[in-house]
Structure formats: C-alpha cells, structure tokens
C-alpha cells in the first residue's frame, strides 16, 4: 500500500508522476516524533519540543519557503511541507500539573519529523 500515491482530496490522472517532495509525507492523524537534532544555526524548532512525540493535526497549505535555508541565503525559494502538530502537555512536561487533555500545537517542517 502506498499511502503517498494520492494527495488528500485530489485525484491524479493515471500516469502522472509527482516530483520528489511535491506532496506531503505525513497525513493528519499520523504519529510523529520531532527530531532531537541540534544543528548549529537558525532552526525554528524550540528545544523544549525536540525528541517529543505528537500527532499530525493538519498539513498547512501551501508549502512554504524553508526559512532555515533562507536564513543563510542558501537555496532560497525551495519550499517544504509543514504541519500543525499536536503534542500533549504531559508528553512535554512529565510533571505537568493541569488536566491530561491540555495540549500544545506547533508548526513543524517535514525535515524535522519522523514516523514513530
């Protein structure tokens, strides 16, 4: 089963081949881990969320310029998919004092997510 064969809500004509990166890798409902990388430079993934797991809530459209590259003038114009990701407060803070259902939402670029 190839879950990337069709972008959500769009039916492709038979025979159409999409470019690498053209469609989002993740779908709403997918379980993901925010990567725990620590590269040097301008990375807009807050450290407190690195390594945490969450659920993809939505693909944010349209794909947006990869600001991590743009910050260095490299590859400006390249667009990447990004997602609204839901993370439970109790996942971020094991001693979170509020109700378990409280949560955090954040936008994360595809390059910072992996399937759990």
């Amino acid at each position: 089963m190839n879950r990337q064969a069709e972008p959500a809500g769009t039916a492709l004509l038979p025979g159409i081949v999409m470019a690498l990166g053209e469609e989002p890798v993740f779908r709403p409902g997918d379980l993901v881990r925010i990567l725990a990388r620590s590269p040097i430079g301008h990375y807009r993934v807050p450290a407190y969320l690195r390594g945490k797991t969450g659920t993809v809530e939505a693909v944010i459209e349209p794909a947006a310029i990869d600001n991590e590259q743009e910050a260095y003038g490299r590859n400006a114009g390249a667009k990447r998919h990004y997602y609204r990701v839901a993370v439970a407060m109790t996942e971020v803070w094991p001693d979170y004092a509020g109700p378990e259902k409280d949560g955090l939402r954040i936008e994360i670029y595809e390059t910072w997510l992996e399937r759990t």
Binding site: A64, P99, D102, G103, L104, I106, E107
Partner: peptide
Amino acid sequence: DDVEIRVSDSTAMV
C-alpha cells in the same frame, strides 16, 4: 479543569 487548554506556539510561518 473540564475545559481543554490548547497553547499554540507560533514559530515560523503561521
């Protein structure tokens, strides 16, 4: 406590 709190952390494009 029966109302869920959702904190949206705005970081890049949104």
